[in-house]
């Protein structure tokens, strides 16, 4: 890992702010997943929330400095892709 601060702000705090913004965007997407008419809007909502979750997992891995989360993010990306393909071919 490289340096820990930029202009007096810790890099971990910047990562935490980005993670909070992504969680807020996920909740806004969850509104469309609940409300949205039809099954296809819900499939896109699940896909979008899964995409945001991958970045969130990588950010959590950098915040807590635990490299295990990158493996979890990789597996989550593969599962998200397989789930979307299976949902569109039922």
């Amino acid at each position: 890992m490289t340096g820990a601060s930029l202009f007096g702000i810790e890099m971990v705090d910047i990562f935490l702010a980005m993670a909070i913004l992504i969680v807020m965007a996920s909740f806004v997407s969850l509104y469309r997943g609940i409300e949205g008419p039809g099954i296809f809007n819900r499939i896109i909502a699940v896909n979008v929330i899964g995409t945001k979750t991958i970045v969130l997992l990588v950010l959590i891995g950098f915040i807590y400095e635990r490299p295990d989360f990158f493996d979890i993010a990789l597996v989550y990306a593969i599962l998200n892709f397989i789930m979307t393909i299976a949902a569109t071919r039922y």
Binding site: F40, T51, I54, F70, D71, L74, I78, T84, I85, T88
Partner: peptide, 27 residues
């Protein structure tokens, strides 16, 4: 770790347009 994240990014750049295309074609 960076190599792992690079693999993750390459997979997402392949998989995300593919899944979008699959959803649009199904709809």
């Amino acid at each position: 770790i960076s190599v792992k994240i690079l693999f993750l990014m390459a997979f997402i750049l392949l998989a995300n347009p593919t899944s979008t295309h699959a959803i649009a074609k199904a709809a």
